[in-house]
Write a protein that binds this DNA or RNA. Structure first.
Lengths: 196, 196
DNA sequence: GTCTATAGGCAGATAGAC
DNA sequence: GTCTATCTGCCTATAGAC
C-alpha cells in the first residue's frame, strides 16, 4: 500500500495555484507573470510550464478550483439548514472573508479582465456566475415560498442584485482597505432586498 | 484675433484620451499598451510620449477628464430638479449607457487594477469615489428630509450600497453582453433601498 | 520534476532629425 | 508635433540536460 504523505508539504502544482490565485485576486490576470508565480513558489518558469502548459491552462485550473470550492461552501450553507436570510448572510460572509485578506473575488476580478481572457477562461467564468446565480435564486425562491422573505420582483432579479451588489461592494471597498465599508453596503443590500 | 478652428478634427491629445479611455474601460489598465493607443490614433509611440510623459500621466489625465465629466453629469441631474428618486434613476442611467457601449465604468475598472496603479492614479481614483459617494449621500439625505424616500439606515450607507451595487451589476452583466441583466439589478436595487 | 539557456516578441521609454 | 531608430527589460514559451 502506498504511503500517502501527510499534507506537510504541498506539491508544486498546488503551491503554484495558491500563489497565482492570490496574484489574480489582488493584481488581475494581466497584472502578474509566470515569473512572479515561479519566484514565489521557489521554482523556475520552466518548472511551471511542466505543470501547466501555459498561462491559459493555469488560469482555467484556477477558476476550476475556485468554482469547486465555492460550490462546496454553498452546499455547506445548505446543510446548515438555517432560514433563507441566514443562508444569504452566510453567503455574504464568504465575500467579507475574502476582502479581509485584501483580495477581490477571483471571478469578480476576472470579470473585469473578461475581454482579454482566453476563450476557455471566459466560458468557465460564465459557468461560475451561472452556478452562483442559480444557487442564490433557489435560496431566495425557497425563502419566499417558506414565508421567510418578501421580495418585490422575480427571485432571479433579486439574485442578480445580490450577486452584483456584493461584487461591487467589494470592488469599491478594497481600494480603501475598509472592510466596514463592504459590510455596511452588504447589510443594506440584504436588509432592503429582503423584507420579512 | 486667433481663429479657433471648429471642432472638426480633434487634436492628437484628445484623440489619444478617447482611445485610451475605451481601452481601459474594456481591457483594464494592464490590458493595453502605448503601441495600441498610438496605432489606433494613427501616430507613433514617440508622438504619444510628447503629449503624455508616460503611461502614468496618460492614466491620471484619463481619470481627471472622466471625473470632471461625471461631476458635470451629476450637476446636470441636480439642475433638472426632479425628486430624489428621479435623480437616482438618472444616475443609474449613466451606468446603463456606458454598459450599452460594452464598457465598464472607467473607475470601477481601475478599482480592480488598483494595486498595480501608480500612486498618483490611486489617489485620483479615491477622490472620484469620494465625490460620487458624497453626491449620492446628499441626494439620498435630501430625499429623506423631503419625504420622497424612506431608508433603513444612514444615507452614507445607502449611498455606498447604491454605488457598489451599480458598479457590481455592470461588472457581472458585461461578460454576458446583457444590458437587461444590469437594468433588472439596478431596478431591484433602487426600488428596495428606497421605499416611499 | 526540475534545471539552464535561450528564443522571439512586445513592453515603456528616449535621442535626435525634421 | 511628428517621425525613425534604438535601448533595455520583461513577457510567454521551448529545447534539452540532469
Amino acid at each position: 500500500m502506498t504511503r500517502i504523505p501527510a499534507k506537510v508539504s504541498q506539491d508544486t502544482r498546488e503551491k503554484a495555484l495558491d500563489v497565482a490565485e492570490r496574484l489574480v485576486q489582488t493584481r488581475g490576470y494581466n497584472g502578474f507573470s509566470y515569473a512572479d508565480v515561479a519566484a514565489e513558489v521557489g521554482v523556475t518558469k520552466a518548472t511551471l510550464h511542466y505543470h501547466f502548459a501555459g498561462k491559459r491552462e493555469l488560469g482555467t485550473a484556477l477558476i476550476d478550483r475556485y468554482s469547486a470550492r465555492f460550490v462546496g461552501r454553498m452546499s455547506h450553507i445548505d446543510d446548515a439548514r438555517g432560514d433563507a436570510r441566514q443562508k444569504l448572510l452566510a453567503f455574504a460572509g464568504i465575500y467579507g472573508d475574502v476582502l479581509r485578506e485584501g483580495r477581490m473575488c477571483l471571478c469578480g476580478m476576472l470579470a473585469a479582465d473578461f475581454e482579454t481572457l482566453p476563450e476557455s477562461m471566459q466560458a468557465e467564468l460564465l459557468r461560475f456566475f451561472d452556478e452562483t446565480h442559480a444557487w442564490l435564486t433557489k435560496v431566495v425562491a425557497e425563502g419566499v415560498e417558506g414565508g421567510d422573505l418578501r421580495i418585490a420582483g422575480a427571485p432571479e432579479e433579486v439574485a442578480q442584485a445580490i450577486l452584483g451588489g456584493l461584487e461591487g461592494a467589494m470592488l469599491v471597498a478594497r481600494p480603501y482597505r475598509d472592510v466596514a465599508r463592504f459590510e455596511a453596503a452588504a447589510r443594506q443590500l440584504l436588509a432592503s432586498l429582503l423584507a420579512s
